[in-house]
Design a protein around this nucleic acid. Structure first.
Length: 203
DNA sequence: CGCTCGATATTCT
DNA sequence: GAATATCGAGCGA
């Protein structure tokens, strides 16, 4: 097993976002004295940029919240939003850009599903991790993990390479008003574990 | 099914 | 004060 490395994340975030679809998001966790692996295949992502992207948290420059977007690439950027939910990103950027990240919007649960259900008790498996706020709850991701190294197999939160991407299309991003014309959302059309029922708009 | 709306922390104006 | 990279309950068709 291997992890996407620093060069993988040292590219334009729209490229990284596309290539993260099909990889595995892994959360290792200690619970009741035992170690567990919670994991899912990434099926939906969004790219965020820097000065070029008015919808990005990094658009206005560095702040305490977004500092991970300006740090080493391949790190977890976890933030709290709407007073209710966490969202998890991976920092990434091409060489001439100073900041960026890829938001993970949906995963298909494959390991530790029963533990996920303890963190997020829902009957419908399609609602367990099909959304940015849902998957952070199911994997018990919070601001403690902000800055975690996603390129390290030993990290509590990391990404593993498992298969080649397939059936990926791009669409406009969800829930933003600025820079809405950018098609920087990437989804695996063969997966039913995608939030908001596809909103395809294939061009 | 689809739409509206409340919850409610953090950041920015 | 207003806006926000969200979610789920409640309502009507």
């Amino acid at each position: 097993m291997s992890c996407p490395d620093v060069p993988f994340y040292t590219r334009h975030t729209s490229i990284v976002a596309r290539d993260l679809v099909g990889k595995k998001l892994v959360r290792t966790i200690k619970k009741d004295g035992s170690n567990y692996r919670l994991a899912g295949i990434i099926v939906e992502t969004e790219a965020y940029g820097h000065n070029d992207d008015a919808a990005s948290h990094a658009y206005m420059g560095i702040t305490r919240r977004n500092s991970v977007m300006f740090s080493e690439v391949g790190r977890a950027y976890v933030y709290f939003t709407y007073g209710n939910h966490y969202c998890v990103n991976v920092s990434a950027r091409s060489k001439k850009i100073e900041a960026g990240a890829v938001l993970i919007r949906g995963i298909e649960p494959v390991e530790g599903i029963e533990i996920m259900r303890q963190f997020r008790p829902v009957d419908n498996i399609f609602s367990l991790s099909s959304g940015p706020g849902k998957l952070t709850q199911a994997l018990n991701i919070n601001s403690i993990l902000n800055g975690a190294d996603m390129t390290d197999l030993q990290s509590e939160l990391h990404i593993e390479s498992v298969r080649k991407p397939e059936n990926i299309v791009s669409t406009p991003r969800i829930g933003i008003t600025k820079a809405a014309e950018k098609s920087w959302r990437f989804i695996d059309t063969s997966s039913p574990f995608v939030s908001r029922k596809l909103q395809l708009k294939i061009q």
